[in-house]
Nucleic acid binder design. Structure first.
Lengths: 124, 124
DNA sequence: CGGTATCCGCACGGATACTG
DNA sequence: CAGTATCCGTGCGGATACCG
């Protein structure tokens, strides 16, 4: 009964699945988790440069959210200029297999989806 | 190289993974796919009643998007009053395992996430 | 019954300027 | 270097009314 995992949860905070999807589904979380999964540990500006087209605000916000959820670890070195390092927690790492398999599915089936969209468009 | 699946795609339409996540991440798609995966075939108002708190507009929009992407099949019976049946396509069904495992992960790790959030909150 | 059409609030995310 | 603070446009999704 998959649907039972979603139904009867009026608020987002009540539903585990919606809670996870709200992270997974936002614009930057998955990419950041993926990059940290590859690179291990990165500083703020290293992440910023690797992603390229993210705004500083969204990088900060997304990292904070991931940290709050216990998916990303933040190490601050109290020096000037400051140095902050980000890495995945074990909980964050446990998400990597899902991201990889979803990535694989997406690349595998994207052509079929594009064909379907084109067909749908021409029929309307 | 997971991150290579996201980087260098300036537009959403260019990136397969973002394309999939934009579906998976929206408010209703996963729930609808899950329910159709359980029930097989359902009429519009059956879906509406099963979900309960979805607006008619979003049910229509989500179903159309899923249909356009080739994940959901729509059978229209030209009669009065009209009858429309929705079901998963094979492509849509191929997403079910991912949804199930993600659901499982979410329920499994939600307590840890909630603990982490509480801890993070009290530290700020 | 299975939709459309329209209006609208709000949250997401970008741009820019500033800071310890 | 690693953020904050502020302003602002856009789009998602809800509410309501109407339609074939």
């Amino acid at each position: 009964m998959i649907a039972e995992n979603y139904k009867n949860y009026s608020l987002v905070d009540d539903c585990p699945v919606r809670n996870v999807l709200d992270r997974v589904g936002d614009k930057w979380s998955i990419l950041i988790i993926s990059i940290l999964g590859e690179c291990g540990t990165l500083r703020f500006n290293e992440l910023n440069n690797l992603i390229g087209n993210i705004s500083q605000k969204m990088l900060t916000v997304t990292l904070k959210t991931l940290e709050a959820d216990g998916l990303v670890d933040r190490k601050m070195y109290p020096q000037i200029p400051p140095k902050v390092e980000y890495s995945l927690t074990p909980l964050g790492e446990s998400l990597l297999p899902f991201i990889e398999s979803l990535t694989h599915w997406a690349k595998e089936n994207m052509p079929a989806i594009l064909v379907s969209r084109a067909k749908y468009k021409s029929n309307n």
